[in-house]
Design a binder for these strands. Structure first.
Length: 821
RNA sequence: GGGGCCGUAGCCCAACCGGCCGAGGCACACGGUUUAGGUCCGUGACAGUGUGGGUUCGAGUCCCACCGGCCCCA
């Protein structure tokens, strides 16, 4: 053991206390209805069982554990559960490789992680453990799906979807990052498929509005806001020559309608195909096929040449009757808005690029004072007076928009509209290790929900190895015995839906299940949920800023509308931890840039690893393990431990008779640490504990002595504060001090106000902003008195010389600044 | 391209409403303890807050621009 002390041996105390805690079960939440203690719910994002715990887990769970342990010490009734997000692809890939069932790999890893969590001393209530891959859990996924279905919130539609060629499944929009699969990094393709969706778009406004009350990191809220992407504008109907129905476009700038000089349809939208004139068809089809071969990344890249083809048709601008050409291009997305836009090249850069490429007219309708876009190639999206715009001339944007909307509404050619970037959540997956979608397809009856009393629809357990290999359709499709069933409605031959649900469905409500994990009459016991939810603190990685956190908020709102919960937001406060990196880059098995958690624990002990994680900086900052010193943590723990071990007074010694200076340090530390813990400033918490340790050490060696009751008070305080971070060390210290185990529930100390007041403070006296003197004054000194004292100071007079005084700024009792004339 | 966050000793990081830049740690140097020590106790040195402006009696903190890094959206 590095830095080990003959008296402080982390390994021995770990073994000793881990088994004692198993007996004591100190962290079980009480469900006694007569338990009147305030309740707190400390929630951690549950892990995926991808092997043993790693450094990232160690950081995240150490952070979540501090607040849970703080609440235990405060005497609250704390719910701090653990479970596993145990459906998902890696298990399936492992099963294919090993010719086994995904459950084998999954549950082995879960057991490994559970043992590691116990070793790592996270204060969990182990009785509530759940696994989303258990039929008892996923049956409620299916039950919830059916309730969503009944409410029209789960539906099937055909359309263009994201397809990951590596994982051989579709992905939700949220799972595509810069055109790559968020999981495996493969370049995502487009396919046209019929899939299941959850109608999250119906909740877009509420997802936005309810963010107000959340104590979440601002950047997470910002990301969600951006993702939802609400914009206000107008729908405008354009007649297309030779087509009966007009085409509606959405625009955020209806004020520029008079500047629309052409019309663009997404090349890959069915609309383009439909309206293409016969003489342009060959050219169009060649272009469209090329577009379809393009990757998302190519289409997204900003600085590429615009491409497109004229469709041989014209649209009619509804306000001025002007004929404008209709083009097809790939810079308009089929899935956004209505798949078509009006192009105003003067005031939109993409439209301008396109206009210049194909020599289309550019008409300025907003006088921005900028040079002519047609000349410069730089669009002018800014504000200004409208010109060339009929009745809008002379108006500013803010008055032109309502005016043009009014005009359009009168003519029945448009209306004010709100648009969202958010798309419905695609939940079908063509993979095995997930929740089967509880729908049966019958030729006669169509989509038939599996009746509730037939849930769960269990996964077949005889598929293994190669049976699970991705083939582009769900492996379940090959399980004939499983697929072919009688229609629940007509009894005729029918087949099960063979897709499984996105595993983000599982994690959208697991925090509710924790409140009543064994409940058999529904996904959760509403009464229990009312007691514990919403979670007081949620701890986890920022990588879920959009995905999981948005979905969980959506589920909560649906459940609220169903009357199943009485709150609309699941997580009051959110803490995002940073990443643990090494030498400036992410840890990764493939590059060998890796630190093994087990090895760190073996070398330094659990407490030192936890302490190092928390001491490294604010929770949300990345930790470069190369910059950290776990051996320094061991040294501090040994130092704290020796303070407790050196105490010679007996338990219960009256601290009031002890050394007053040390007592002040102790109580100031209590006061500050309490505030700092609540503000998640754990690195500063540790710095304060180090100071208290030094003060106690000094008192023992060269001050009041080891027998002084103030030393005992300091040591006991230190022990309880330390128990949030280094639970093993704290337990052992507590025992040495004669306390009753567990130290984890010894009770949070209270600072005595009388020990916090200072009888004098140092007041800085500045002349022209430079410090010239310091005065020891009473903290409640009057401003006028302080000013007199400062002006009387010898040093101040010397600094002033023969200059007069123009002004004196007094901030009693801290500072006086004298401004010379 | 748009939006956001960040930049403090060699390194990791503190600094409430603008008010003495330095709490804590690592590394370093020195002294003491010690049979020894990679232990323990103590002491010390090192920065003026990325750069340039502005506001202010006073700016790490507020405003503007630039440089560098990270994130989100296109």
């Amino acid at each position: 053991m590095t830095g080990a002390d003959e008296n402080y041996d982390p390994r021995t105390i770990q073994d000793k206390w881990q088994s004692r805690w198993e007996e004591l079960k100190p962290f079980a939440a009480s469900e006694d209805p007569g338990d009147e203690r305030p309740r707190k719910y400390a929630l951690d994002m549950f892990p995926y069982p991808s092997g043993d715990l790693h450094m990232g887990h160690a950081e995240a769970f150490a952070i979540g554990d501090v607040i849970a342990r703080y609440w235990f010490q405060k005497g609250y009734n704390v719910l701090h559960p653990i479970g596993w997000d145990s459906f998902g692809l890696p298990a399936e890939n492992a099963a294919i490789k090993r010719n086994s069932h995904p459950a084998d790999w999954t549950y082995t890893n879960i057991d490994t992680q559970a043992e590691s969590f116990k070793r790592y001393a996270i204060a969990f209530d182990w009785s509530r453990r759940l696994h989303t891959s258990d039929p008892e859990y996923y049956r409620w996924n299916q039950w919830l799906f059916l309730r969503f279905y009944e409410r029209g919130l789960a539906y099937r539609k055909g359309g263009q979807v994201n397809w990951c060629p590596q994982d051989q499944t579709v992905l939700a929009n949220e799972q595509v990052k810069d055109g790559h699969c968020e999981r495996c990094g493969a370049v995502v393709e487009k396919r046209v498929l019929t899939q299941w969706y959850f109608k999250i778009t119906e909740y877009a406004d509420r997802l936005l509005a309810d963010m107000k009350g959340l104590e979440w990191p601002e950047r997470v809220l910002l990301m969600q806001r951006n993702w939802i992407g609400r914009s206000e504008g107008a729908d405008v109907a354009f007649q297309i020559e030779g087509r009966d129905d007009p085409i509606t476009v959405y625009t955020t700038r209806p004020d520029t309608l008079y500047g629309a000089t052409f019309f663009v349809v997404a090349a890959d939208a069915p609309l383009a195909d439909e309206i293409c004139a016969p003489e342009q068809r060959a050219e169009f089809e060649a272009y469209r096929d090329a577009v379809r071969r393009e990757s998302e990344i190519e289409r997204l890249s900003a600085d590429r040449e615009k491409t497109g083809v004229f469709l041989g048709r014209h649209a009619v601008n509804p306000v001025n009757g002007e004929r404008i050409p209709v083009w097809a291009s790939d810079y308009v997305l089929a899935e956004y808005g209505h798949g078509a836009i009006m192009a105003v090249p003067a005031h939109d850069q993409r439209d301008l690029d396109f206009a210049r490429k194909f020599a289309l007219p550019v008409r300025v309708v907003v006088q921005t004072g900028q040079p002519d876009p047609a000349e410069t190639g730089v669009a002018t999206p800014g504000e200004g007076e409208l010109v060339n715009s009929g009745p809008l001339n002379g108006l500013a944007k803010s008055s032109a928009i309502p005016r043009i909307v009014e005009v359009l509404e009168e003519k029945g050619l448009g209306k004010a509209a709100v648009n969202y970037r958010l798309r419905d959540w695609l939940i079908s997956r063509q993979r095995f290790w997930g929740t089967p979608i509880p729908i049966i397809h019958c030729d006669a009856c169509g989509e038939v929900p599996v009746p509730d009393d037939q849930l769960p629809v269990r996964l077949p357990d005889d598929l293994r190895g190669a049976d699970l290999a991705p083939k582009g359709v769900s492996p379940l499709a090959a399980a004939a015995d499983w697929v072919n069933v009688a229609c629940p409605k007509c009894g005729g031959p029918a087949t099960r839906d063979t897709d499984t649900m996105d595993t983000f469905v599982d994690s959208s409500w697991y925090f509710l299940r924790y409140c009543s994990p064994g409940y058999a009459d529904g996904p959760f016991d509403a009464e229990k949920v009312r007691r514990w939810m919403p979670a007081d603190q949620y701890t986890g990685g920022v990588e879920h800023a959009i995905l999981h956190l948005l979905y969980a908020r959506f589920f909560t709102k649906v459940l609220y509308d169903m009357g199943m919960v009485d709150f609309t937001e699941p997580f009051k406060r959110l803490v995002n931890q940073g990443q643990v990196i090494l030498n400036g880059s992410a840890m990764s098995k493939s590059t060998g840039n890796l630190v093994d958690l087990g090895e760190q624990i073996a070398e330094y002990g659990v407490d030192a690893v936890r302490l190092t994680m928390l001491f490294s900086g604010p929770p949300e900052d990345d930790i470069d393990w190369a910059d950290m010193s776990p051996s320094g943590s061991v040294k501090f723990l040994a130092r704290a431990f020796r303070v407790a071990a050196d105490v010679t007074s007996v338990p219960g010694a009256d601290p009031a008779t002890g050394d007053i200076e040390l007592r002040k340090v102790t109580h100031r530390t209590i006061d500050e640490v309490t505030r700092l813990v609540e503000a998640h400033r754990y690195n500063v918490v540790i710095a304060r504990m180090m100071e208290l340790t030094s003060a106690a050490r000094k008192a023992i060696d060269t001050g009041a002595g080891a027998a002084d009751p103030a030393v005992r008070e300091a040591a006991e305080t230190l022990t309880v504060l330390l128990s949030l971070i280094a639970p093993y060390t704290a337990e052992e210290m507590w025992e040495r001090l004669g306390g009753v185990a567990p130290a984890a529930k010894a009770g949070w100390p209270t600072a005595e106000p009388s020990l916090l007041v200072q009888e004098s403070v140092t007041c800085v006296v500045q002349v022209a902003g430079k410090v010239r003197d310091r005065l020891e004054v009473s903290p409640d000194i009057a401003g006028a008195d302080l000013e007199r004292l400062a002006l009387d100071s010898e040093k101040v007079r010397a600094a002033l010389g023969d200059q007069g005084v123009r002004k004196v700024i007094v901030r009693a009792p801290k500072i006086v600044n004298i401004v010379p004339a």
